[in-house]
Amino acid sequence: MKVVENKSLHTNYCLLKLKSDQALPPMLPGQFVQVRVENSPATLLRRPISIHYIDRDKNELWLLVRKVGNATRAMAKYQPGETLNLLLPLGNGFTIPSVTAHKQNFLLIGGGVGIAPLLFLGARLKAENLEPNFLLGARTKDELLQLDEFQKFGTVYTTTEDGSQGEKGFVIHHSILKNLRSDYIYACGPEPMMRAVARYAASALISCEVSLENTMACGIGACLCCVENTHEGNVCVCTEGPVFNIDKLKWLS
């Protein structure tokens, strides 16, 4: 796919907007792409990146990239006009509740770059006439990204570790978790955050899905490297996930 825009959102983050000549295939929030990072000789394997947003009108796919290693730093250097080789769409995606879920509360909790799939999910929920709430956490105000985009689809609550914006602390300490009863929680972020959210959801009897990011090689269920030990044994995160209902995981036991 061709890069149409590479926007730096922060020293450590960029937003890549990609366009395809052909119509993009159907894709679900929570699915991911495998990026071949051809401009990084030190990178052999593809890198799994969440689908941040799909703009059907412009036939664009957005990726939110956090620069953590050689591969993602190289990815952030792609310029408009250059092409990026992707395998897509991969994985299962979040469960979209049926229309009977009206008047129920959806809370989408993201931490760090884990906010990425929640924009696409929020857009899909909004398109189903549901009203998502977002709870997004970051270390500092500068790392709370894409807030204007999230606000298009629902109410946004924030936390920062230094208190520079929103409530101070981690997402799991936000007052909304006490003040607003949610019926569905979707979470993506660092594993300790997701485990804390899972414990909260389980104790409050709220249906909860989390998106895992186990280290992958193939991304299509062939190599069996990215397995998560679930109640059904070791399953591939790339094909059975990356989204799992917490009931399936062994996190709570």
């Binding site: 394997l45 186990n214 992958m216 090689a217």
Partner: peptide, 13 residues
């Protein structure tokens, strides 16, 4: 898990 590590021009499984 973990079962995989990328290395220079290769991977361990």
């Amino acid at each position: 898990y973990p079962r995989m590590a990328e290395t220079s021009a290769g991977m361990l499984n």
